[in-house]
Design a protein around this nucleic acid. Sequence first.
DNA 1: TCACGTTTGTTAGTAGACCTTCCTTACAAA
DNA 2: TTTGTAAGGAAGGTCTACTAACAAACGTGA
Lengths: 391, 391
Amino acid sequence: MTATTQPLAAAHGVGRALRPTGKVLPEHARAHNRSLVLAHLFHTGHASRADIARSTGLTRVTVSGLVAELIAEGLVEELGVRVEGKVGKPATLVGMRTEAFQIVAVDLTDDAHLRGAVMTLVGAVVARRSVALEGRTGQAATDLLESLCRDLLAVATRPVIGVGIASPGVIDVDGTVVQAPNRGWYDLPLAADLTESLGVPVHVANDANTRALGEFTYGSAAGSGCMVLTIGEGVGAGIVVDGALVLGRHHAAGEIGHVTVVDGDARDEPPLDCACGRSGCLETVLSVPALRRRTAGLSTEDSDAALASVGRLLGIALAPVVSALDLAEVLLSGPPELLDGALRESALATVRARTMPVIGHGLALRMGSLDEDGALAGAAVLVLSGQLGVS
Amino acid sequence: MTATTQPLAAAHGVGRALRPTGKVLPEHARAHNRSLVLAHLFHTGHASRADIARSTGLTRVTVSGLVAELIAEGLVEELGVRVEGKVGKPATLVGMRTEAFQIVAVDLTDDAHLRGAVMTLVGAVVARRSVALEGRTGQAATDLLESLCRDLLAVATRPVIGVGIASPGVIDVDGTVVQAPNRGWYDLPLAADLTESLGVPVHVANDANTRALGEFTYGSAAGSGCMVLTIGEGVGAGIVVDGALVLGRHHAAGEIGHVTVVDGDARDEPPLDCACGRSGCLETVLSVPALRRRTAGLSTEDSDAALASVGRLLGIALAPVVSALDLAEVLLSGPPELLDGALRESALATVRARTMPVIGHGLALRMGSLDEDGALAGAAVLVLSGQLGVS
DNA sequence: TCACGTTTGTTAGTAGACCTTCCTTACAAA
DNA sequence: TTTGTAAGGAAGGTCTACTAACAAACGTGA
């Protein structure tokens, strides 16, 4: 038993805030509760004011007030009386007017084309437009993107509540593109610039993160912890942990494509050079071009063996991440003929073999439930979340 | 250019909430702002009401009200007039009464002893107590813990605002021990039970997570993303991402000790059997006993080589995690004579070699700045955070 | 058939929280 | 002594959500 009086830090001025916090005003509380009501209607489809009151914990009076405000803005409408015969006064249902507004979403994942769509608030595609990039970068690429957005805004048949853009590269929370080498964008405040020029709120986020958002909101991703691995020209990931997207120190979280997975001293295969200047990166074996090269001309059996060996490498890289974050799911997004077979099974078996049973046993590793529109859907979620607080 | 009308989900009832949200009342806003004021005083040491108003964004009137409330509760006191001569009425400084209250912290990391301390609000140890566990588990261990807490509460010279406990095992957000095999605890509502029997608020969290909190608040950990790797009998980790502790699906995040790092086909060393029933786990090479066995009787040179080879294995396991989360720092907590040398340098070099330059280059991998009291300090932070909203 | 209980949604009044505006106090500089 | 600046507090207003009470609408059971 000893007693010391040495403090762990000076008597004053210790530490720093765990989470950047700001003041909260009553009006912020109201905005939060308003989003709560709207989100409930978004997720359940329709409900009575009393239903909403019960599930949010607010009183019927407060909910009535919020619903009235939402109806006045045109976001919500009364749907008539509930038909189910129960005792008491029948409820008048209200629902979100998901067809009354539209969202413009753009996916910049592809190096050759800008793909965009007009969507309803529930993610249904109303119209599509795409333009060839034809090698444009920098300002020329920005101009082309802006004109695509204008086209889409013109095609929309309802008021557009915002534009969502999924872009490759490192993008901060304000929608500034810190760097996107393939587009020649560096420190470009894309969201702010387009919001200014288009006159509509614009939200921009990384394409892998966006895809994770899309899977999460419209797909089947688990909220308690999941990772969406996007496999295309490159390999990227978006990670949702404890219900929130992981951003990282440089907003570069999920950049898992350039982790070394093939060592120089490996017996079975030599490391391949990577575009990043190093060699043996995950991208050199798992990207779609790499997988196609690897399986080209092989018999089904040999092809499966090749895919399984890539799956094993993926599993080795995933195991520490899955363990450290206690993830519930890993979703793969990309060509199913390459991914959804020997590769996926081998990766899952590898992760299970290399992690604690409690972690690996319940883990799901499967294909994402959205197709190539995943990034578009996620871009729409950016707008829903940013403009309406719904997600 | 095509147009489809197929929705990504049914017109109603899509998705689920991104983050579990609840209603926010004006009184919650006040509690938040109160914590904001207190946290400012905790971090800066002392300030005038006007200073606080400027840095929080609240008005002087509101801050005065909150400060008056805090003074009435005895948490804050006036410190006299600021001496620096500037124009205008001199400011009366206020500060948190960090010596007026105490915290009881207990560290259950050790398998043989329960270690506890009475601490001030800034983490200075006022008194220590420890008791030998002597093999007790289950209810006997709980009883011993409770009596240690009572001893510490009796030793405290000031009112105790709460008890913080750092325990090994899987622990949920309510302080229920889901499982802690070494203590024989399963589904034990430890925080609730002790709060009831001691009559003081009790907070319980995993010891690795707690240590991360301690490093974060009193130490030098980076808030934007860091991982504190605790190396003792076993290997565990606490991870702070985007300013919040990662919990994971089963509240088992950070359980990185049982990731396989030694393969069966490795040329240089065979995988060792692990207590978890598998083999080749990180813990079989990185735990303190394993490191001591490995370096016992070796010359300095050979010992460094052995430690470097373990560091390389650690680096291989860390690289995917660092990349996926874009971590700024990895801190090691454990015996410096084993960790802070060839092992650390080799691990850092390995991580840098196996990740993108933008990720690995700025990464710091160093020893935690707190010693063996790290878990105690973190337990104190649990109380500060839970009772006062300060962290 | 009809009183009764149940449920819904609204109106009225209350309490809390913050803001803006204005005032007093206190000091330094001219 | 005058002037300008800054701190702190008091008064009044706005916003938010709550409780209490009530009317409307419906099923149920005597």
